[in-house]
């Protein structure tokens, strides 16, 4: 036997080792533990704060930027970042900071729709494939293989060709392009759990299949699928902004992160901030979301 108490995962711990200690369960202790966990991870705390700020920007942008994103002062056009204009101004003299803050709403809306489409459609397909098995599994997984064979961007572009332009259509196109990922993870989780000893044990004590599905399969599969959903959120922000950059998203003058960069592109030689600032917003959001996804993916359970 190796000294398994040093291994990270308790779940696969030593056969018969007496390492599992009762875990503190009172509310106070849990809060203390959570605080200590966060205290050791300043990056995670910063990520959470940033994501909260982005959410505020999406729902009540005027809290962070009271000005009107579409009104500019032509005299102040193309000013570099300064105390007056934190992110500088654009070619119509509009404040870039205000436009970035107000752009969060459209970008986030599209991202949420995309992830929801992927999660619901992909999750159901995966659950069906994993739980029913046989030819249903066979058929659905071949379909997933095909979706994986077409690069996501091209699949989204094909969908846009058929559906037309606009934020919501872009969002749906991005969501459908990542259905395959969710289907695969959900199927793998469902299969893993369905074949686990504890599900067989449940079956052998007479539990019916739908009870097994509800009480064993869904709760145990939820974790990994949610982790993927958070990760996918970051990817969807990137995909949505790419398509907006290419000009398939919201029509101007509505601010949207991708289209802001596309607008700024014409002034890239002299006014770098037009492109740089919205890009930083995208990058910071994606980084934060990815960091949180990593924390959800077992870091918490390993740390205790």
């Amino acid at each position: 036997m190796t000294e398994l108490l040093i291994r990270e995962s308790i779940g696969e711990a030593a056969p018969g080792s007496a390492t599992a200690q009762p875990v503190a369960a009172t509310r106070r202790e849990r809060v203390v533990r959570a605080l200590r966990f966060l205290g050791r991870r300043p990056g995670l705390v910063a990520s959470i704060v940033f994501v909260v700020l982005v959410l505020v920007a999406a729902f009540v942008p005027s809290v962070l930027a009271p000005g009107d994103p579409n009104v500019g002062v032509p005299a102040d056009k193309l000013q570099a970042p300064s105390a007056a204009h934190m992110f500088g101004t654009d070619y119509l003299g509009r404040d870039v900071y205000t436009r970035v803050v107000h752009g969060a709403a459209l970008s986030l809306q599209a991202t949420v729709i995309a992830v929801a489409v992927a999660l619901v459609v992909g999750g159901l397909l995966g659950l069906l494939a994993g739980f029913v098995g046989r030819w249903v599994d066979e058929g659905l997984m071949r379909l997933v293989d095909v979706l994986m064979a077409i690069p996501a961007v091209l699949l989204s572009l094909a969908l846009i060709t058929a559906l037309g332009y606009g934020t919501v259509k872009v969002a749906i196109a991005v969501g459908i392009a990542s259905v395959a990922n969710f289907a695969r993870v959900m199927r793998a989780e469902t299969l893993r759990i369905r074949q686990s000893t504890y599900v067989e044990a449940a079956r052998s004590v007479g539990t019916r299949w739908y009870v097994t599905l509800r009480r064993h399969v869904l709760p145990n599969a939820a974790g990994p699928v949610l982790v993927l959903a958070v990760l996918e959120f970051g990817l969807a922000i990137l995909a949505v902004s790419s398509l907006s950059f290419l000009g398939y998203g919201a029509p101007p003058p509505a601010p949207e992160w991708g289209s802001l960069i596309a607008e700024g592109r014409n002034y890239i030689a002299a006014s770098w901030w037009l492109c740089a600032m919205p890009g930083f917003a995208i990058a910071a959001t994606v980084l934060s979301v990815n960091r949180i996804s990593r924390a959800l993916d077992g870091e918490w359970s390993r740390a205790r």
Partner: peptide, 22 residues
């Protein structure tokens, strides 16, 4: 790597152009 996959590709291109070309 996790930084690199978090950056929008088109934005990286534009920033490189800004820096190395202009």
């Amino acid at each position: 790597p996790s930084l690199a996959v978090s950056l929008p590709v088109f934005w990286v291109g534009l920033m490189l152009v800004q820096l190395f070309s202009f």
